[in-house]
Amino acid sequence: MSESRSKTFALELSACSGWSPVYVQIEWNLMSRLERWTYRLTRIVNLSTILIIAGFILLALGGLTFYRQYRPAEPPPALAQEPTALPPTPLPPTPVPSVTPYPTHTPYPTYTPYPDEPTPTPSPTPIRPPAQHPPDRIVIPSIGVDSPVVEVGWSVIQGKDGKFTSVWDTADYAVGYHKSSGLPGNIGNCVLSGHNNIKGEVFKNLSAVEPGDMIYLYADGHEYQYKVENAFIVKEVGASEEQRRKNAQWIAPTSDERLTLVSCWPYWTNTHRVIVIAKPYIPATPTPGGLEYR
């Protein structure tokens, strides 16, 4: 609406209603603004409606595309199967007439003679008869030892601290059997010792004995076989009192039959002890009576 037309309309309205032209002009301006906002709001609503409808259309098209792309494949039409021939019906078995056997003859009782006196069976000689005396020979094939065995005792010596200690004697040019230790074939620990670098050096290579090696003792005309189970070296010179007590336990009495060999090591200092533990071995085909010497 033009400005001149607004003014003319305001004058006419004031003349008819008796209002002041100023108030009429203000009222007209307010009505114009309300119409403009109403028009703008209507356009916004129409645009939003169009956008929502377009969104639904795009969503429907996307869903249809997804369904066509990922819908499960239709299974192929089933092939016509040929009819399976039924197996022939077996004929019922022909009954076989049973034959009634003739009655068997009951035999007369046989004569049982009186038993003779049982023949006494001699008890077999044990493979490892308990020895009554110390061993007198030892053979260790793995290190080439074949030496006589003699009995040895112990000596009491005074140490640097003034204390007295019992020390086992060592045999010269032979292996020493510790007096009162176990006997072959009996429960107990049979202890043998020998020099490694002086007076025969019978146990010079005792440190080379390994588990599985065989040792043969001879006593009372019988052979006693032993198989090595363990071999190790312990420190003796310069060791603590507790360690030396532990070392001495290897030559102490035991509740099983075993053979223990002891010697010094190494060859040039003798600061350690070689200890070999062997257990009784019974071969699958033992020598009758165990009397054969090697």
Rank of each mutant, 00 (worst) to 15 (best):
I140F: 00
P134G: 07
P88Y: 02
L58W: 12
P109K: 06
P135L: 01
D136L: 02
V152H: 04
V139D: 11
P141R: 09
P92F: 04
L79P: 12
E74Q: 14
Y67P: 06
V99L: 11
R68A: 11
P101F: 01
H105D: 07
V150A: 04
P92R: 08
P118D: 11
I143N: 01
T106V: 15
H105G: 08
P93H: 04
G144C: 01
G63A: 14
Y111K: 06
I127E: 10
P118W: 08
L86Q: 06
Q69F: 09
T170M: 04
Y114C: 04
V145L: 00
V96W: 05
S123T: 13
V99E: 14
V167E: 14
P115M: 02
Q158G: 07
P103F: 02
P141Q: 08
P109Y: 01
W154V: 05
D116K: 09
A78C: 06
K160S: 14
R128I: 08
P113R: 05
H105F: 09
D136N: 10
D161M: 04
L64G: 14
T110N: 11
P115Y: 07
P141M: 09
T94G: 06
G63V: 14
I157D: 12
P83V: 15
P122C: 02
I143K: 02
P97K: 05
E117P: 10
P103H: 03
P75D: 07
R128D: 10
T121I: 15
A85G: 02
P103Y: 03
P92I: 03
L79D: 11
L64E: 10
Y108G: 09
T121L: 13
P130R: 01
Q81Y: 10
Y114L: 09
S166C: 05
T121Y: 12
V149G: 00
V156G: 03
A80W: 05
A60F: 03
A73Q: 09
R68D: 10
P101H: 01
G159P: 03
S166R: 12
T65Y: 09
I157F: 13
P75L: 12
G153Q: 01
I138Y: 00
V167P: 07
E117Y: 15
Y102A: 12
H105Y: 12
S142N: 08
A131F: 02
A73S: 11
E151N: 09
K160E: 14
G153E: 04
P135I: 00
I157E: 15
V145A: 01
P122R: 08
H133T: 11
E151F: 02
P120H: 08
T106W: 05
A85E: 01
H133C: 02
P124G: 03
P103T: 03
S123Y: 10
W154D: 13
E82K: 14
T104D: 14
P126R: 04
T94S: 12
L59H: 13
P118F: 03
G144H: 07
T165H: 13
S155F: 05
Y108S: 07
E151V: 13
A131G: 00
R137V: 00
T121C: 07
L86S: 04
T65F: 13
V149L: 00
V152C: 03
V156D: 14
P95A: 14
V96A: 12
P129Q: 02
R128V: 09
P130F: 00
T84N: 05
R71T: 12
D146P: 00
P97T: 12
P93A: 15
P83M: 13
S142C: 08
P135S: 00
P109S: 03
